[in-house]
Design a protein around this nucleic acid. Structure first.
Lengths: 92, 92
DNA sequence: TTAGTTTATTATAATATTATAATAAACTAA
DNA sequence: TTAGTTTATTATAATATTATAATAAACTAA
């Protein structure tokens, strides 16, 4: 049971686009249109990844004028990614 | 590119059976037959998960008499899991 | 209102992952 | 050798994930 929850969380982090989303939100809010160019996927696909991250409580969003902006809600998610990245630079 | 590698690694950890395998190997070697009862999946399925973990360099194995025993090769994998687990106990 | 902009949703095809069943492979021990 | 034990592999069906295309929804600003 505990393994299911942990696995589910790691699985959500285990996608390159979602990792790009999280690392590009490291320093605060970004609207969807900006994320689109940073992450380099279609608006539709991006929106789906954002929802996956939001549903897991990793992101939150708010409207700012004409745009909707996302930011990191659970900083730990980013920490896991950073930690995993560190292992690879150490490994080679 | 870097994201792909990190994502690939996290994806491998994002499965309950593979998490069970890793946590049950925390203190050293275990042969496949023992893992089978701990993890609670069929021998065939277990063997496939072991191969996935071995191919990623997370596990290694050696023959001990009639059995084949696995142990953790990349301790960092377990650290990631422990870290993720910790987040949930903190969260609630 | 209406046109335009931004984001979300839905349906779906393509692909990847997983578990099962059957069998093969690699041994050991008699 | 041969029988028995342990583990790996293969084929495949079931399921999950992903990206695309089309469209809807939610706004803003004129």
């Amino acid at each position: 049971m505990r393994e299911e929850i942990t696995a589910d969380f790691l699985k959500v982090l285990g996608h390159p686009s979602r990792i790009k989303i999280l690392t590009s939100l490291e320093n605060g809010y970004k609207c969807v249109r900006d994320l689109e160019s940073v992450v380099g996927i279609t608006q539709s696909n991006l929106s789906q990844h954002l929802r996956i991250l939001k549903d897991k409580g990793i992101l939150e969003h708010e409207r700012r004028g004409t745009e909707i902006c996302y930011r990191i809600r659970d900083r730990n998610a980013l920490d896991i990614i950073r930690f995993a990245e560190k292992l690879f630079t150490e490994r080679g």
